[in-house]
């Protein structure tokens, strides 16, 4: 799945590493989680009802369509959370009562 976003400036920042669905990706310091993921791939999450992929919409904390799960079962609003090195994002599985 090709990346959605494209960087047009500020490319000389320090790189950081995150994991998306188990794959290591490179992002830049100061990226939001949304930008870190979407400069690498084409989705953030799946809609709960039709299971179609979604990639955020408003980028200003209003639409709530960018909540992503981390592997340890916490959720982040990707457009308003700064990416941290080592974050492990999952876009495929919802880690909720999976141990049952």
């Amino acid at each position: 799945m090709p990346a959605l976003f494209r960087r047009v400036a500020e490319k000389d920042r320090k790189t950081i590493h995150l994991f998306v669905d188990g794959h290591e990706i490179e992002a830049l310091e100061g990226d939001t989680v949304l930008v870190a993921v979407l400069t690498r791939t084409g989705r953030l999450r799946h809609n709960e009802f039709d299971n179609a992929p979604r990639a955020g919409f408003c980028l200003m904390g209003a639409c709530q369509d960018c909540w992503v799960w981390t592997e340890d079962g916490t959720q982040l609003r990707a457009c308003s959370t700064t990416a941290q090195p080592g974050m492990r994002i999952t876009t495929t599985e919802v880690p909720w009562l999976t141990n049952l």
């Binding site: 709960e48 009802f49 009562l97």
Partner: peptide
């Protein structure tokens, strides 16, 4: 709450 997989 927000929607989650149906498990309860």
């Amino acid at each position: 709450t927000e929607p989650l997989p149906y498990r309860i």
